[in-house]
Simulated assay, not measured.
Amino acid sequence: MFYVDLYSLLKEEVEYFFRHLYTAPRLLEPREIELIQKIRSTFEYTYETSFLPPASFKAIEKADRQFREEFGVPIPEFYKKFLAFSNGFRSDLYTFFHIPDEDSPVEWLKSEEHDEELYFINEDFLIPHNRYYRVLKWDDEEAKEMFFNPNYFIFGQHRNFLEITCAYDMSTHCFFTLHHYFHDLKEEYPDLCSFLKEIFYMNKDPSATAP
């Protein structure tokens, strides 16, 4: 989004802060919030609606309960904290998945199912993507036995290369991008900040662009 003057830009930033971020629980680490805010302000990657209103605790608890019932594991704590800050993330590079929240002020976040006009939104929710990885993705049992890892939590996807997803290993607590066709080609990162810096600043000098 472009602004006609400095006042318009500052007005939008202040309004966004008090509309969404001021009321968001500060469950993320300060350095994570700082990096996320820096990414949001980078117009090369993001746009006005990149970050969304926080998911309610009720919605997070409901999604976590459904995740446990369907997959036998909870949603990792790091992502529950992220959802409490912003219910997903949308940019020109990556999407981090949403959860349905019937109390959300954003209409299309209230449900996983949308009509034909917003059908593309249906693909950006958390549980359907993990269901696909755990159940629907595998053409045969041999491939599943070779490559499927029940400890992988899928929380995002590349916007242009849909076969590349953002993953978290619940056994090693590492972050990485998982390629649909090349399962062994992955570089692990020990925390969310390191992973975010990699996927958003991998072609830049990190010291110059990332905190």
Rank of each mutant, 00 (worst) to 15 (best):
L83D: 08
L83V: 08
F85S: 03
F85L: 07
S86P: 04
S86D: 05
S86M: 01
N87I: 00
N87M: 00
N87D: 09
N87Y: 02
G88F: 04
F89W: 11
F89S: 10
R90E: 15
S91K: 02
D92S: 15
D92V: 08
Y94L: 04
F97K: 07
H98P: 00
I99V: 15
I99Y: 00
P100E: 06
E102A: 09
S104D: 05
S104M: 03
P105Q: 05
V106I: 15
V106P: 06
V106W: 03
E107V: 11
E107H: 12
W108P: 07
L109H: 11
K110W: 04
E112R: 12
E112H: 04
E112M: 06
D115Y: 00
D115T: 07
E116L: 10
E116I: 03
E116A: 07
E116Y: 06
E117I: 11
E117S: 09
L118M: 10
Y119H: 14
Y119D: 15
F120L: 14
F120C: 09
F120K: 08
I121E: 14
N122A: 07
N122Q: 13
N122G: 09
D124V: 10
D124R: 08
D124H: 07
F125K: 09
F125D: 14
P128Q: 02
P128S: 04
N130C: 10
R131Q: 05
Y133P: 08
R134K: 06
R134W: 03
W138F: 06
W138S: 07
D139T: 11
E142N: 11
E142L: 02
A143Y: 02
A143Q: 13
E145A: 12
F148I: 06
N149K: 13
P150F: 02
P150E: 13
P150Y: 05
P150H: 13
N151V: 06
F153C: 04
F155M: 11
F155E: 06
G156N: 03
Q157S: 10
Q157H: 03
N160Q: 14
N160M: 07
F161V: 04
F161S: 15
E163V: 00
E163A: 05
I164F: 05
I164R: 08
T165L: 07
Y168K: 11
D169T: 09
S171R: 14
S171P: 01
T172N: 12
T172H: 07
C174M: 13
C174V: 14
F175E: 13
F176L: 03
L178H: 14
H179M: 10
H179R: 13
H180W: 08
H180I: 05
Y181E: 15
Y181A: 04
F182G: 09
H183L: 01
D184Q: 09
D184M: 02
L185I: 13
K186F: 00
K186H: 13
E187F: 07
E188R: 06
Y189P: 08
Y189V: 02
P190R: 09
P190K: 10
P190W: 00
P190I: 05
D191E: 11
D191P: 01
C193A: 13
F195T: 12
L196I: 02
